[in-house]
């Protein structure tokens, strides 16, 4: 179970690539083949990619903005 207020910053998941298939969702099983080490490595890569960057925040136009 996820504790949303866990004070430690965590990467919960990563999906690499895009889905060009115009009908259903493509699931990438490549990383599944490499086991737990692939998750640790991917979380590290994702942290490095996110660090120090400022994203455009999408709130949904009809939603209350914080």
């Amino acid at each position: 179970m996820i504790d949303p207020e866990d004070p430690r910053p965590r990467i919960l998941g990563v999906r690499f690539g895009v889905n060009p298939n115009s009908s259903s969702l493509g699931i990438d099983v490549t990383f599944l083949l490499f086991g737990g080490a692939a998750a640790v490595f991917s979380a590290l890569v994702a942290s490095v990619l996110l660090r120090g960057r400022t994203p455009v925040v999408l709130h949904g136009e009809d939603q209350e903005k914080p």
């Binding site: 996820i2 949303p4 207020e5 866990d6 430690r8 910053p9 965590r10 990467i11 919960l12 998941g13 990563v14 999906r15 690499f16 690539g17 895009v18 994702a46 990619l49 996110l50 960057r53 400022t54 994203p55 455009v56 925040v57 999408l58 709130h59 949904g60």
Partner: peptide, 25 residues
């Protein structure tokens, strides 16, 4: 890079490399 808040934190879409990263709050 775009970020969309979700209940458990946010989804972040990267373009280089293409990736969708789910992060906690």
């Amino acid at each position: 890079m775009k970020l969309r808040p979700e209940w458990n934190g946010a989804l972040v879409a990267l373009e280089r490399p293409h990736a969708l990263v789910s992060v906690n709050r």
